[in-house]
Amino acid sequence: MFLKQLYYLREIERYQSFSKAAQACNVSQPALSRAIRQLEDELGIVIIDRKKKVFGVTDDGVRVLKWAHDILRGVSELRNEVSSSRQAIAGVVKIGVIPTAVHIVPILLEEVRARCGDFASEVFVLPNIAIIEKLVSKELDIGIMYYDQCPQAKAFEVRALYAEQQVLATSDASSLPAGDQISWEAAARLPLALLSRELRCRQLVDVGFQTAGVEPIIRLETNSLEMIHAEVMAGKVATILPVSSFPLRVPPQGRLKMRRLPGFSPGSVGLVRLSEPGLSTFASEVWATVLKTRLQDDLDLLCKSG
Score class of each variant (00 low, 15 high):
F2N: 15
F2A: 13
Q5C: 03
Y7L: 15
Y8L: 07
L9Q: 01
Q16W: 10
Q16M: 11
Q16F: 05
S17H: 02
S17T: 08
K20D: 15
A22D: 00
A22V: 00
Q23E: 14
C25W: 08
S28Q: 09
P30K: 04
A31N: 10
S33F: 00
I36E: 04
D41T: 11
I47R: 04
I48C: 02
K51R: 14
K53T: 02
K53D: 14
V57D: 03
G61D: 03
A68Y: 03
A68D: 04
D70R: 12
G74L: 12
G74I: 10
V75H: 08
S76L: 12
S76H: 06
R79S: 14
R86K: 14
A88S: 12
G91A: 09
V92I: 14
K94L: 11
I95A: 07
T100G: 03
V102K: 09
H103C: 02
I107Q: 06
I107N: 01
E110A: 13
E111H: 08
A114S: 12
R115L: 13
R115G: 05
G117H: 08
D118C: 04
E122T: 15
F124V: 08
N128L: 04
A130V: 10
I131S: 02
I132V: 15
V136K: 00
K138Q: 15
K138C: 08
I144Y: 00
M145F: 01
D148V: 05
E164M: 03
E164W: 02
E164N: 08
Q166M: 13
A169V: 03
D180V: 09
R189V: 03
P191T: 02
L194C: 04
R197N: 11
L199T: 01
L199Y: 07
R200M: 11
Q203N: 04
L204W: 09
D206A: 10
F209G: 07
Q210N: 08
G213F: 01
I218K: 04
N223D: 11
E226L: 00
G235M: 05
K236V: 08
K236Y: 04
I240G: 00
P242V: 04
V243T: 13
F246E: 06
L248M: 04
R249W: 02
V250M: 13
P252I: 04
P252K: 09
Q253D: 11
G254Y: 05
K257P: 01
M258Y: 02
R259L: 08
R260M: 07
R260H: 08
L261V: 11
P262T: 09
S265C: 13
S268H: 10
V269K: 02
V269L: 14
L274I: 08
E276V: 10
G278H: 06
L279G: 03
T281K: 13
S284W: 02
W287D: 06
L291H: 08
T293I: 03
Q296K: 07
D297H: 10
D297Q: 11
D298V: 09
D298P: 00
D298W: 13
L299P: 02
L302Y: 02
L302P: 03
S305G: 02
